[in-house]
Nucleic acid binder design. Structure first.
Lengths: 337, 337
DNA sequence: GCAGTTGAATGGAACGCTCCAATCCGGTCC
DNA sequence: GGACCGGATTGGAGCGTTCCATTCAACTGC
């Protein structure tokens, strides 16, 4: 396409019969410009269909007013709302948001980070990244970095925003205990970052209630539908059978629901079920899953605010914000039979 | 942050004891550079942690090697896989992908398009945009535009990629008829772009099978869980009661499933159910919804290829690629009772 | 009527890079 | 040994902006 032939500020200036400097002033709304000139420039701009070149502007201003966001995996239902929060706050603070995806692959994430840095984003937000810590550290050397949703990354210079996963599972356990359950099991995930705190929160809450002996964890890589099914199947083989199950996330919970179906057990009459993430899956009325909600919108807000503050003032120790999760009770939890 | 203090090609040149031109040559892998110099430059680059400035490069090269992608709404499960396809093909063809979201709001979409154009993307892909046609037309004046998933936008200069929605619902109807169903109803959506062809495909297939008299459409804005529930409730009040229902999308189908539950009817024993989109919701084993799948990955490939071809050669009439949907049969369809 | 003041408008340098034209240098050939 | 060659290297212009320093024009006050 004729990228080259697009009108420049020069063309506008010529058509309006003024200097390019004046056009620049008008475009940026400077005060001391006569109405006559202002109108002439505005006219020329619409006549030519002129659109300022952000590339040139960024070069000379030495800033891009852009924050890069690395989304590890667009399929992860967790991220969309976080991005909404980021966007909202970015608009508020005068930044543009550039999304890059990593397809869940560490290599692709690295490439994306590199690309964003070459584009000279002024800050970088990483959502649930799977890449190595050294990449984060390296990036944080040239630009403020905020990591959302990973507990294991505690680096100097890198702020983090996450929700208290241990607290989340504890909330779920307390809810179930309050309903009268004692045999509460957990379907845990393996690799993923959130797995450990969620499991630990479950175990701690059980011990606090004097139920340390009833702790049952079906572990493996149970973050999928299929995984939840398998995890539940294993649990159903044990005696005494759990009367309530807390899954690592909603998808696993729905898989567990399938296993209960197949075993002829009803939810919540025979077994209560709790998910995690409060994804739209949980809200679907046919499933109506009790789930732990992370304040996603707020996490986005907070992450962007953190980046913004670092851009203005890069000093100060790393902040690690931890937000409180909320339990959303729906139809899959009830007192035990 | 000290954006300004980041090393430039000049710093690298100085440290390596060569000219900036030579550094540029090395960085772009030019052939006629002595090994000694090449090594010296490489050393200086790593010493300084130099990263080329894509902004400056784009300005002088008069191209950004970037394609902008407007995602109307990140929550729409349809788009993630399309973006995967876009990304894949972009990497293949040497482009970078910049995602911008519009939050489902027409105004925000316009802003995003404007921002992407100011960033001088070389092409624009719009996924299920909700914005007005004139915005698309206007954008297409300065950059090649490809629209994915909207049937109503047929503009000169604008290529489209979509899947044949009428064919999709027809596939579903044919499947149900093959199972022996005659009373097949449709839960349609109102506003959204895909609503009309899906309904028409249903009606046409019914007529082709001599079942024109059995056509039942519960229409409204039934694209949500809740909407599917209402639509199904209305259908259940009619006599004869349909033995099979085809919903506008998976979410509506799951809502319908809830209504059937509440009415004490079983799926698929009493009523067969078909969704649309084959989202991961449909694949969840507890739901296991028969659904119509759009070739999302391929749509992404095709869209990016189209943009690429327009960038190289902007002429030729607009292409409107229509891909074949595929019916994925799962557990919610069976012969009528 | 002229220095001084103020508001409006402009020219040119600079941002970090690419790329063209020019230069440099060590051989080769006759 | 001087002309010529070709690969290696370099200086400088230019990409489309912003912004500083300067100029210009029109007043003001005495």
């Amino acid at each position: 396409m004729n990228l080259a032939r697009r009108p420049t500020i020069h063309d506008v200036a010529e058509r309006a019969g003024v200097s390019k400097s004046l056009v620049s002033l008008v475009l940026r709304g400077a005060p001391n410009v006569s109405d006559r000139r202002r109108a002439a420039v505005a006219q020329a701009v619409t006549d030519l269909g002129y659109r300022p070149n952000a590339v040139a502007r960024s070069l000379v201003e030495q800033r891009t007013r852009t924050v890069g966001v690395l989304v590890s995996n667009l399929h992860n239902p967790f991220f969309a709302e976080v991005v909404d929060g980021l966007q909202e706050q970015a608009t508020e603070l005068g930044y543009r948001v550039l999304l890059g995806s990593g397809n869940g692959l560490s290599v692709r994430e690295e490439e994306t980070v590199e690309a964003l840095l070459e584009l000279r984003v002024e800050g970088l937000v990483m959502l649930n990244p799977v890449l190595d810590a050294w990449v984060v550290d390296d990036a944080s050397r040239s630009v403020p970095v905020v990591v959302v949703g990973r507990h294991d990354l505690r680096l100097l210079r890198v702020d983090t925003v996450s929700s208290d996963d241990a607290r989340g599972t504890a909330l779920a356990v307390e809810h179930l205990i309050g309903l009268g359950h004692r045999h509460i099991a957990h379907i845990a995930a393996g690799r993923v970052a959130a797995a450990d705190p969620r499991r630990q929160g479950y175990e701690a809450a059980m011990r606090r209630a004097g139920l340390g002996a009833q702790i049952r964890v079906s572990s493996g890589d149970y973050t999928t539908d299929e995984g939840g099914y398998e995890g539940m199947t294993k649990l159903l083989a044990e005696r005494p059978r759990p009367t309530a199950v807390l899954a690592h996330n909603d998808l696993a919970a729905v898989g567990a629901m399938g296993a209960l179906d197949d075993a002829g057990l009803r939810v919540p009459d025979d077994v209560s079920l709790v998910g995690y993430d409060n994804s739209y899956l949980a809200g679907v009325r046919h499933l109506s899953l009790t789930s732990v909600s992370q304040p996603r919108l707020e996490m986005g807000h907070l992450a962007l605010t953190a980046v913004h503050e670092r851009i203005d003032n890069s000093d100060g120790p790393a902040r690690n914000d931890v937000l409180e999760p909320v339990l959303v009770v729906r139809a899959t939890t009830a007192p035990p039979h």
